[in-house]
Measured scan of single mutants.
Amino acid sequence: MSIQHFRVALIPFFAAFCLPVFAHPETLVKVKDAEDQLGARVGYIELDLNSGKILESFRPEERFPMMSTFKVLLCGAVLSRVDAGQEQLGRRIHYSQNDLVKYSPVTEKHLTDGMTVRELCSAAITMSDNTAANLLLTTIGGPKELTAFLHNMGDHVTRLDRWEPELNEAIPNDERDTTMPAAMATTLRKLLTGELLTLASRQQLIDWMEADKVAGPLLRSALPAGWFIADKSGASERGSRGIIAALGPDGKPSRIVVIYTTGSQATMDERNRQIAEIGASLIKHW
């Protein structure tokens, strides 16, 4: 058993032996400061991975655009179909130039040979490839079927209504393609630790998130040596930015963190910096 498999397999085991986890309101002070700095709403939640207890939250039940963070949920739905014998990670999917949409750094290189379902999930999560996400959405029946999958998990909040890139429109008060921090954190925890997916599929999902290559300026920039993080970021119109993550010290995840912001006029660099500073406060007061 690899170190990674050891880590995921023991998450339920550690729940019975973990020390009490204490919240630190200092992080919420930073979240509120980020709102002031960005001139935008910020949603935040910090969840204990083992118990599911909410440690801190700010606007946990307000809607925010999901942006590309939905791609983790999408690959969770794909893995659920794999577990049920309805899909194979090794199945190759062929597509054409007409299928390519904006920001497809991986799929645009494989027009001649296509990509496997496994490769598409990797591209969608680690590189946020939009065509990969659309191709995967097609395999499960489209955005409405992803919403149905989430409903069956008990998440009646999170919804996907459109495809890439239209889902990134982020119109104020538009509930399409949105979630709430509390709903996203709970759903992510179920995917990573619950019985919905097999152990192998849970491991695969967290491996893809751990290999994320496009979230460096966010929480990863504040991470001390030896800490673990598996994450997925997102960005969209109207100053929207977000990240969902499982992270913790000693090389294993122990908390879920979800951060969303929307409605800012700030630059992408400034949005990144504010999220990184929230992460730094979280780690300092861990």
Rank of each mutant, 00 (worst) to 15 (best):
G279C: 10
G85S: 08
L38C: 05
W286C: 05
R220Q: 02
I11M: 14
I283M: 09
I278P: 00
L223H: 01
R63Y: 04
P12F: 12
K252Y: 11
Q97A: 15
A246S: 05
S233A: 09
R238H: 14
E166Y: 11
A183C: 06
S57V: 06
V72I: 07
F14G: 07
N98I: 14
P181F: 00
W163A: 07
A200V: 11
K284R: 12
W286S: 00
C18A: 15
I140F: 07
R63T: 06
R41L: 08
H285K: 05
N134K: 01
R238Y: 12
T186H: 15
L49S: 04
G263K: 06
L160S: 07
D174H: 03
L218G: 04
A276N: 08
R241C: 05
D269N: 11
S57E: 12
K144I: 11
M67S: 09
L38M: 07
G43E: 00
S122W: 13
A77S: 08
G239R: 03
I244S: 00
A280D: 12
S254T: 13
N152V: 10
S201R: 05
E210A: 10
A200D: 14
T186Y: 15
Y103C: 06
K30S: 05
L199V: 15
H24L: 06
S57W: 11
N272M: 01
N134I: 01
R220E: 01
L160H: 02
R63A: 04
F70C: 04
F6T: 09
F13I: 08
A211E: 12
E277R: 09
A170V: 13
G251S: 09
I259N: 00
G239E: 03
N168Y: 04
D174R: 02
S281P: 01
S264C: 09
R241H: 05
I259M: 05
E166Q: 10
L137I: 08
L219T: 01
E237G: 10
L10C: 10
E164K: 10
G234R: 00
P105G: 03
G226N: 09
P217G: 09
K252I: 12
T198M: 08
C18V: 14
L146P: 00
E237S: 12
R176Q: 10
E210T: 09
A246C: 11
S68R: 00
I243E: 02
A266H: 09
M184V: 05
S240D: 14
W163V: 08
T267D: 13
P224L: 01
R7G: 14
M268D: 06
I244T: 02
G226S: 07
T27R: 07
A16T: 12
L89I: 08
L89N: 03
A170Y: 15
L167Q: 03
Y44R: 00
S240I: 08
D207N: 12
E237W: 07
G52S: 04
P65Y: 03
M66I: 11
E61L: 13
Q265S: 14
V157I: 11
S236D: 07
E87Y: 02
P217E: 12
E175K: 09
M180K: 13
S80E: 14
A170R: 08
T267S: 14
R162C: 06
W286V: 00
A215H: 03
I171S: 14
Q86L: 11
N98M: 15
T178I: 02
M66T: 03
I140V: 13
N173R: 09
L167A: 06
T131A: 10
R81H: 08
S57N: 06
L218I: 03
R118T: 14
S221N: 09
A9S: 13
G90D: 15
I243D: 00
A245S: 05
G239Q: 03
P12G: 13
P65D: 02
V21S: 14
R176T: 06
T107S: 10
I229S: 00
A183H: 09
H285N: 13
E56Q: 07
V214I: 09
S96P: 06
P181S: 01
E145Y: 08
V82C: 13
W208R: 00
S201A: 10
E166I: 06
N130C: 05
L19V: 15
A183N: 07
P143L: 01
V106R: 06
E169G: 08
A280V: 10
A183D: 05
E119G: 09
L223E: 01
F22Y: 13
V8L: 15
V258I: 11
A200G: 14
T193A: 13
T198R: 08
K144M: 11
M66A: 03
D207R: 14
L197P: 01
E87Q: 06
I3M: 09
D250P: 05
N152Y: 10
Y103G: 09
P65L: 04
A84T: 12
A211V: 05
R92S: 08
C18W: 10
P224S: 02
T138I: 10
R7H: 11
Q204E: 11
D99C: 06
D161S: 05
K53G: 08
F22V: 07
K53L: 11
H24T: 07
P224H: 02
I283F: 12
E237A: 14
R255S: 01
Q97V: 15
L55R: 06
D99L: 09
D174K: 03
K144F: 10
K53W: 07
M115S: 02
S281T: 15
A246L: 13
V106A: 08
S281F: 07
D99G: 05
R162T: 09
R220C: 01
D83C: 01
M268K: 05
T126V: 08
L38T: 06
G263R: 07
I243F: 04
V42L: 08
S254K: 09
E61V: 12
P224M: 01
A266D: 05
T267E: 10
A211L: 07
S254I: 07
I125M: 11
A84V: 12
E119A: 08
N173Q: 13
T186R: 14
T147A: 03
A222N: 12
A16V: 15
T131S: 10
S254W: 06
A9C: 15
S2V: 12
I244R: 00
H24A: 07
L137G: 01
E87D: 10
G251F: 05
R81A: 09
K232N: 00
A77G: 06
D83G: 03
K252L: 09
P253D: 03
D83H: 01
L191V: 06
P217I: 04
R59H: 06
R162S: 12
N272S: 05
N173V: 08
A222R: 14
E277V: 08
P172Q: 10
F6V: 10
K32N: 07
P249N: 04
N168R: 02
K252A: 12
E56V: 05
P12A: 14
Q88G: 09
L282R: 00
R255C: 01
L150S: 04
T187S: 12
D161L: 01
V78C: 03
E119R: 03
A245P: 00
S2N: 13
K252R: 10
F70I: 04
R162G: 08
V214C: 09
G90S: 13
G85Q: 12
G43T: 00
L89F: 07
N173G: 15
